[in-house]
Amino acid sequence: MKRILNDGRNTAAMIRPAVFLLVLVAITGCSGIKTYPNTMDKNLFVDLKKDRGVRVSLDVYDVDANCRAGYRGTVQLDAKVSEVGIPTSKWLFLSFNFARSSIIFGNSSMGHGTMIKARRGKIYRAKAIYRDDMYSVEIREADSRDAEGREMEHIELSECKPGER
């Protein structure tokens, strides 16, 4: 085994199939992350302020009457303001994830999630900030994009009680 690994060509021969498999996994979506089908009318506007090197994404989950969360998909929040269409009149769990990579600490990701029941005709403005290893997420409900609106209550998934939602 040692001999093979010390041989550059054989190592490359071993690495090539591994890389191929990795690419295949990425293409087929076997990583577990799937793109959120962002096809509904846009009613969630995410205003993002972040440090360089921080990747921000939003995971969208359905929450059923038994408080089970079903993963719908992930939206990569690359733009300064991202527009997302979320279903109304049903409970969702929105999880904002702040991910970083560093040589010393490797990959890390911090999630901040809340349950939300969007109402038809309302718009939701989320302000997501990640600065100097500190973050915040605030979601407001308003009648229009310019209106001040009201701050939505933060509800953890663990606060969900079966049959009450």
Binding site: F98, R100, S108, S109, M110, H112, M134, S136
Partner: peptide, 19 residues
């Protein structure tokens, strides 16, 4: 520590516990 100082002053930021 910085987060608790911020909360005391009225700012609402969470610390990244992975850092």
């Amino acid at each position: 520590i910085a987060a608790v100082e911020n909360w005391s002053k009225g700012d609402h930021l969470c610390p990244d516990l992975t850092q």
